[in-house]
Write a protein that binds this DNA or RNA. Sequence first.
RNA 1: UGCCCGAUAGUGUAAUGGUAGCACGAACGACUCUGACUCGUUCUGUCUAGGUUCGACUCCUAGUCGGGCAGCCA
Length: 608
Amino acid sequence: MSVEHTESSAAAAAPAPSDFIRDIVAKDLAAKRYEKIVTRFPPEPNGYLHIGHAKSICLNFGIARENDGQCHLRFDDTNPVKEDVEYVDSITADVNWLIAGWADHCLGLKSKGAHPVRQVVNGREDFHMPAVLESEIRNPKSEITAESFFASDYFEPLYHFATTLIKKGKAYVCDLSPKETDEYRGAPDRPGRESPWRNRSIEENLDLFQRMRAGEFPDGARSLRARIDMASPNVWLRDPLLYRIRHVAHHQAGDEWCIYPLYDFAHCLSDYIEGITHSVCTLEFEVHRPLYDWMLENLDLPRPRPHQYEFAQLNLSYTILSKRRLLQLVQDKLVNGWDDPRLPTLSGVRRRGIPASAIRRLATIVGVTKYDSVTDVALFEHAVRDELNAIALRRLAVLRPIKLVLTNIAPGEVIEVDATDNPQDENPTTRKVPFTREVFIESEDFAELPPPKYFRLKPGGEVRLKYACIIKCDEVVKDPAGNITELRCTADLSTRSGGANADKKVKGTIHWVSASHALDAEIRLYDRLFTVAEPGATDDFKKFINPHSLDVVTAKLEPSLRNATPGQRFQFERLGYFALDPKDSAPGKLVFNRTITLKDTWAKGGKP
RNA sequence: UGCCCGAUAGUGUAAUGGUAGCACGAACGACUCUGACUCGUUCUGUCUAGGUUCGACUCCUAGUCGGGCAGCCA
C-alpha cells in the first residue's frame, strides 16, 4: 500500500524567499548587531487562528529557520476579559500543525512554570527569560518540560518596570474616568489637554500605583499613564495608558492581579524580556512604533533592544479574514463551528483536507510587502491543487450515480483490474479494483442529447471505463415518467490493459464503481462561502453568504476506501480532492469533505 | 481638515540608478486510459506632472488615489 507523502518536492526545493524584512535581518546579521535571530508569533488567545495569521507564522518561523534562529510562540494575554484557555489550546494545535516538519525545530519554548529572573547587567537592572535549548527539550535525561511563552508570566517584571518609569517621572497615576480620558486626548487634527493628575509627586504615584495593585480601587477609577506629550500629532504618544484596573481572574495568572498592562506597555517589554531581535507585526501598528521605542529607551535597558517592523496583512478574495467577523459567523450559526471546512480558520482548512504545505506555499506566493492588497483566491487554490496533486492517492468514486449494465459480462463475474495510485509518482504503485456486470457511472457522464464536443457516453457512443475497457451504449432504459433508470452497454474486453486492442483510442474516459462492491459514503461538497469578491468591504457581509456553499450527497466508492484513515487525502479521479472527515466519520461510516475540485476547463468554457 | 504608510499586467510579486522578469489567471494549441497533470504560443504593466542624471520602477518636489491612527482591545 502506498504511503501518502507529506510535502511535494516542488515546495521542498523552492528557494528561500526574499523581502524587505528578511533583507533587514540579513543586514543586521552582517553587521553583527545580534548573535542570534529571535522572532516571535504573539497571538492573543481570544479567537481561532486563520490563514491571515498563517502568513505571520510563516514569516516569523521562516526568518528563524533561514537564519538558524528561533521563533517564540507567545500568548499576548494581557486582557483576561476577552480571553480563554479554549483559544490557547486551539492556537497551540494550529501552530504546531502549520510548522510540523518544516520549522518545528525552531519553535522557541520556555520551561514549564518558569518566570523571568531579576538580574543586574553592567550595573543596570534587567529581566531576562530566553527559550530553553532545543537540545535540552530533546534530551531524554532532561527533566525540563517546555511550554509556550505567556505575557502573563511577566506581570511581576512589568509591574517593576512600571515602577521604574514612575521613579523616573515618566509615568503617573491618573484619576480621569475613561470618558474624560477620551475627551482630554483631543483628536488627530487637534491637540489634547494635559490631565490634572499629570504632575503628582513620585511618592504619591508610587503609593497610588501600589494601592491599585492591592485592589483598593474599583475598575476604571484610576489608571497608570506614560508621561509623554499631549500635543503630539501621533495620538498614541498622548500619555497612553499603561495599566487599567480589572477585578477579574486571569485564565493563566488566576486571582493574583487586578491591574493588567495594556498592549503598548506589555508587548515591547515582553519582546525584550525574551530576547526577541525582530518584532514583526501588521501595518496598523506602524503608529505604535514610536511608543514601542519610547518604552525601551526610557527604561535604560542593558541588553540589545528589539525593533518593530510592519508588513501588510493578507486579504483573500471571496474570504473573510477578521476574527470579529468569523466569530459572528460562528455565533450566528451560519457555519458549524470554528472548524467548519468552509471557514478560513486553520482548524477549518485542516479539516477540509488542505495540507499545511499549501498554506506555506500561499505565504511564499503572496510575499511580504507594505502594500495593502487583495490576493485572488485562485492563487491559493492553485497552491492547494498543486500540493495535493503530488501527494493524494487516486481513487474511484461516483458522486451522483446512474446504473450501467454490461450485458456481455456474466452476473457474478468479478474481473480484477489494476488501478494506479498516483501517476505523479516516479514508480507508481497499483491496487486491484473489482469490475463487474453492473457499475455506477457519474450521471454527468451520460447525455441522451449531447452538446457539441461532448466526449462522454451517449446513445450508440463509445467511452473507456478507466482502468477497465471500452464500452458501447446500446440502450437507454427509462421509467414511465421518462427518467433514465439504467444504461445497457456492451464491454469490449479486448481493449483491457494488456488485451489485443488495449491501444484503441476513444475520446472519453470516465470513472466508475462496481455496484455490487460499492461503499456508500456521505460526501460534503463545499463551495466558496461568499458570492462576492470582497465580502468584507461593507458591514453587511452576511448578506453575501453563498446559499450553496455546502451540498451533501451519498456517493458510491471503490471498496479500498473502506480503510481510509481520519484526515487522509485522496483524489477521486476526474472529480477533485477529498479528505476523510476526522470528526464525523466512524467505523463503518465514511464522511468525506471535498477539499477542492479539479480544474475543469470543460465545465468552465468548453461546455456550451 | 493633523500625523504615518503605500501605489509595477486582471491578481500577487521581482528588478536596491543600467535589458521591466516570475507565478497565478485568461485564450488558443499539443499530449492524455483523469476535459486533471505536463508542454507550447499568446494576452495585459511601472498612478500623474515636473526635476536630478548619459541613463529613473528606483532619487527629489508637487499632486492624485488608496490604507492606517482618536479602546481603560490586541
